[in-house]
Design a protein around this nucleic acid. Structure first.
Length: 484
RNA sequence: GCCGCGUUCGUCUAGCCCGGUCAGGACGCCAGGUUCUCAUCCUGGAAAUCAUGGGUUCGAAUCCCAUACGCGGUACCA
């Protein structure tokens, strides 16, 4: 017979993000969380957080806190006030494992890791698929009892019902029909010898208990999904809808890894990427609203409104940092200065203290030039200290020193005559351009260099506006002295 | 090895389910415009024989089959 599981309509949509605490939130994990969040919110459903901390050997202190911190930072709020830690529910998993044993749907296995290892090697030598040979399944009840009484270490294995069921099929919300033959499925360990459950048991039980309607997870789980479905069936539980997301890839198409760049969300935060940009970027890595939409910039609300699993791609997507930079720049450009000022705080300390008003002027002229927040001030050091430069740089094309001096003196006089109330960005621009008249290059280039000492910089009126009348006059004066 | 999943411009993708627009958009790149320089902004351009080979059809990126390549899984890790 064939066990076919079809998705049915759920009255209430509930999804979850279930990371294991490895120390930080992986950018791929962020996308998985985002998609789960978006799907749930789109359907007015619940989104929950669960920590899969069933591997004691990989315990990392403080990892859960970091995970929560990153999720909160991103604005992916979960609905359970008490986060679920699997390590705190050991007795539940044990109870269900024992239930399966008593129903002969699972069995204790006393094989040692070494024994299993040599068995696998033998199978591989014979070019067979490595698979547990069920030697412990054939132990007599007395033998089992004896071993347990003497306290022999053992695990519980799920007995794949491959005699009754030859094929497990289900419809993945992203990939469509997927099928596996049960004879190829291994009798998975569901309870380890230390009493902890494996992922397979714990996630099935918890997803059932939490009434999760849609299990949205990475593609790496696709091959173990038939085992999970068989577990649901063994318990007599309703099977949730599965949706397996494509992987995030390195530029060389391997699975996104630390080796080839940053993978932790916090790394991107530190580099000055905005959460709106990261979310937007990551959302579009494998999803698109379709229907001919050419929209690229989406707020979280818009993502919620437009998201659907049907539009999620099947193929992995390369994480292209250039596109992220562009998108981050888009968000920076759209941001009100007051907000930008707040966001930029962590990177201000490497510059002299110039005060809030001054910083806001700096940001106003840098806003269109930034890709990342950590770039503030980077290209414009002259906004904070007097420039040093070679006086030949003051010359516009092949102008001679006489004209140069004339132009700078003209600029000096012009600025001296500007009243305080006209010292704003727009008015300065008008005044500077009017004074330049037809001789823009001759007038503006030396002026700009005198203020910046740079070949490339924002326009002189913007620099003047930022540094103020006094500093502007001083810098022009210095330039004039430099010529002779 | 075996099992599974995937494959449209360099990259992210639309289109595929319901065969018939020069295969559309964005990033990046190139050129031009605006401009004292840079950035922004605007305009234009190059860029995919829709992995390959068969088939079905008057007609296929779209439907079917095979092959190749890539990736994932094959743990008392998740």
């Amino acid at each position: 017979m064939t066990a076919t599981t079809t998705s049915k309509s759920h009255t209430s949509i509930r999804t979850r993000f279930a990371p294991s605490p490895t120390g930080y939130l992986h950018i791929g994990g962020l996308r998985t969380a985002l998609y789960s969040f978006l799907f749930a919110r789109h359907h007015d459903g619940g989104f929950y957080l669960r920590i899969e901390d069933t591997d004691r050997s990989r315990y990392v202190a403080g990892a859960e806190e970091k995970l929560q911190e990153s999720l909160k930072w991103a604005g992916l709020t979960w609905d359970n006030p008490e986060i679920i830690f699997q390590s705190q529910h050991l007795s539940i998993y044990k109870k269900y494992a024992e239930q399966l044993v008593s129903e002969k749907k699972a069995y204790p296995c006393f094989c040692s890791p070494e024994e299993l290892d040599s068995m696998r090697k033998e199978q591989q030598a014979k070019k067979m698929a490595p698979k547990y040979d069920r030697r412990c399944l054939h132990l007599s009840p007395q033998e089992v009892k004896q071993k347990i009484v003497t306290g022999e270490a053992h695990v519980i294995r799920f007995l794949i019902p491959n005699e009754e069921i030859v094929q497990v099929e289900y419809t993945d919300a992203i990939r469509g029909k997927v099928g596996f033959r049960t004879e190829l499925l291994d009798d998975q360990v569901i309870l380890k010898s230390d009493g902890f459950p494996t992922y397979h048991l714990a996630s099935v039980i918890d997803d059932h208990v939490m009434q999760i309607s849609h299990v949205i997870r990475g593609e790496e789980w696709l091959p173990s999904t038939p085992k999970h479905i068989l577990l649901y069936r063994a318990f007599g539980w309703e099977v949730p809808v599965f949706a397996h997301l494509p992987l995030l890839l390195n530029p060389d198409r391997s699975k996104l890894s630390k080796r080839q760049g940053d993978v932790a969300v916090e790394d991107y935060v530190q580099k000055g990427y905005l959460k709106e940009a990261i979310l937007n970027f990551v959302a579009l890595l494998g999803w698109n609203p379709g229907k001919g939409s050419e929209k690229e910039i989406f707020s979280l609300e818009e993502l919620v409104k437009n998201f659907s699993l049907e539009q999620v791609n099947k193929a992995g997507a390369i994480f292209d940092i250039k596109r992220l930079d562009w998108m981050n720049g888009e968000y920076i450009k759209r941001m009100p200065i007051d907000e930008l000022y707040k966001k930029v705080q962590p990177w201000m300390s490497k510059y002299p203290e110039v005060g809030e008003e001054y910083w806001k002027r700096v940001l106003a002229i840098e806003q269109d030039r930034l890709d990342r927040l950590d770039q503030i001030g980077e290209k414009n050091p002259f906004l904070f200290v007097d420039p040093e430069y070679n006086s030949t740089l003051l010359r516009w094309k092949d102008m001679d020193d006489k004209i140069l001096r004339e132009m700078l003196e003209k600029a000096h006089a012009m600025i001296q005559n500007i009243p305080k109330e006209n010292w704003d960005r727009e008015k300065l621009g008008e005044i500077f351009l009017a004074e330049a008249g037809e001789r823009r290059g001759e007038f503006l280039w030396p002026l700009r260099v005198s203020l910046t000492g740079a070949k490339q910089s924002p326009p002189p009126q913007d620099i003047a506006w930022v540094i103020g009348k006094e500093a502007t006059l001083k810098r022009i004066h210095i330039a004039i002295l430099l010529i002779s």
